Amino acid sequence: MNHIFYIMGKSACGKDHIYTALLNNEKLRGKLEPLIIYTTRPKRKREKDGREYFFSNEKKLADLRNSGRIIEERVYQTVYGPWYYFTADEGQIELDKYSYLGIGTLESFRKLVKYFGEAVMIPVYIEVDDGIRLERALKRERKQEVPKYKEMCRRFLADCKDFSEEQIEEAGIRRRFENNGAIKDCIDACAAYILVTEGED
Rank of each mutant, 00 (worst) to 15 (best):
K60R: 12
Y193G: 10
C153I: 15
L157E: 10
P147W: 07
G68N: 14
I132G: 08
F5P: 03
P82G: 08
A21R: 06
Y149N: 06
V120N: 05
C160D: 10
T78D: 02
C186A: 15
Y125N: 08
P123A: 04
Q167E: 14
I194A: 12
L95H: 03
R110S: 11
Y84L: 09
N2Q: 07
Y6T: 09
R110F: 05
N24G: 08
Q77L: 14
F86N: 01
G9I: 03
P147Q: 03
Y125E: 00
G117T: 12
E47P: 04
L195H: 01
C153N: 13
D188Y: 06
K10M: 15
F86M: 01
Y115S: 12
E90N: 06
C153E: 13
G50E: 05
A192L: 00
G68S: 13
T78A: 02
T87Y: 13
F55L: 03
Y115H: 10
I4Q: 06
L35I: 02
Q167A: 14
I122G: 13
E145A: 14
F5L: 03
I7K: 11
F109P: 03
I183R: 13
I18A: 10
I122K: 14
D188W: 11
E118A: 12
T20H: 13
D185Y: 14
Y115V: 09
Y98W: 04
V196Q: 14
F54K: 02
E72Q: 15
I194R: 02
H17K: 07
E107L: 09
P147I: 02
S108F: 08
R174N: 15
G102D: 03
I103Q: 11
I187Y: 07
I4G: 05
A12I: 12
Y100F: 12
V120H: 04
L112N: 04
E165T: 13
I4H: 12
F86H: 09
F116L: 15
V75T: 15
R69G: 04
K27N: 00
E47F: 07
E200D: 13
N2L: 10
A171F: 06
R133F: 05
K148R: 15
E107N: 07
L112I: 05
C153M: 15
M8Q: 04
L195A: 01
I187T: 11
V120W: 00
E118I: 06
V79C: 14
G50M: 04
N66V: 10
A137F: 05
L138D: 05
A191V: 07
G131Y: 05
K161I: 12
V113P: 01
E90Y: 01
F116R: 11
F109D: 00
F55V: 04
K43G: 03
E141Y: 01
N180Q: 05
R41E: 04
D159E: 13
G172N: 08
Q92I: 09
